[in-house]
């Protein structure tokens, strides 16, 4: 146990029973108070608080990454990673409630005002309640499994199946020969597709597999070359750009240099 870990263990000993319930209640109250204080703060002060919290949270992960690790791939901060991750999960859990409230607000208004399509909204709200009750009270029953497997998963599969038709229409549009680039794309796609399927491979199966220049003309070899020598480097190049772009924007957010959004207007007003 490292010094930080032992200090935290002494400062926050494990609680059980009533003490644990009291601590949880205390934490909830403290969170509510913190949110109320944050709401009451003027824009600039709130922005400063948010910037400070963002910096500290980012600093934790940066230090955890850069501090040397021991043989067990751990350093002085590694033990706290799951706990900090749990904080993020708790915040995410709270926002899920806000998401559900949004659904109820919009679809509830549709039902109450009998707007066009209110039946769909009523069905959605009913389904939401039934699924929630089934998940909480009857998780081990056939009723819940049936709702999940036979209804929800089937709907997911149906939506996924729609993709097959969309792929055809998108491919048709992409492969229409309108320009030199589209022609190149069409030919490359045709070769790659033929190189992946048995009938395509059969077309050039009489050519040697390797050891001769003729092997370069085999459709499966051309297809493989297109995928590994042309496509993969292009994808990696995009990946490099994205990685560096991600690093830059992460730095801007971590150091609160990003302007133009996220509560900037409120901060500037006050």
């Amino acid at each position: 146990m490292n010094p930080i870990q032992s200090f935290l263990s002494r400062a926050f000993p494990a609680l059980h029973g009533g003490a644990l319930a009291g601590a949880v209640a205390g934490c909830v109250v403290a969170c509510v108070v913190a949110v109320l204080i944050l709401q009451a703060l003027p824009g600039k002060a709130r922005k400063a608080v948010i910037a400070a919290v963002t910096f500290v949270a980012g600093l934790f992960y940066a230090l955890e990454f850069f501090l040397p690790a021991n043989g067990q791939d751990e350093n002085i901060l590694t033990f706290a990673v799951p706990t900090v991750g749990n904080v993020t999960n708790v915040l995410g859990g709270m926002t899920l409630g806000l998401g559900v409230l949004s659904l109820i607000r919009i679809h509830g208004a549709n039902v109450v005002k009998v707007k066009s399509g209110w039946e769909n909204s009523a069905l959605l709200l009913t389904s939401m309640v039934v699924m929630a009750v089934a998940g909480i009270k009857f998780e081990q029953t056939l009723f819940y499994r049936s709702l999940f497997r036979d209804v929800l998963n089937s709907f997911d599969a149906a939506m996924f199946a729609v993709l097959a038709f969309f792929i055809v229409s998108a491919a048709y549009r992409a492969f229409r020969i309108k320009s030199a680039e589209a022609t190149l794309l069409m030919v490359a796609a045709l070769v790659v597709m033929l190189g992946q399927i048995p009938i395509g491979q059969y077309l050039t199966h009489w050519l040697p597999v390797k050891g001769s220049y003729l092997s370069l003309l085999r459709l499966d070899n051309i297809s493989n070359w297109l995928l590994t020598t042309v496509n993969a480097p292009a994808q990696r190049a995009i990946g490099f750009g994205l990685g560096i772009g991600g690093l830059a924007i992460a730095l801007r957010i971590w150091l609160s240099l990003e302007r133009g959004a996220y509560f900037e207007a409120k901060a500037d007003e006050s």
């Binding site: 995009i238 994205l242 772009g245 730095l251």
Partner: peptide
């Protein structure tokens, strides 16, 4: 690709974001 991350700089022309974009290009 990284045009996605360049979007905010391109749209706003904010010096901070433009500087960040140039830094990305050097990298």
């Amino acid at each position: 690709g990284d045009e996605y991350y360049a979007a905010s700089a391109y749209i706003s022309r904010e010096p901070t974001l433009l500087g960040s974009l140039v830094g990305q290009d050097i990298c």
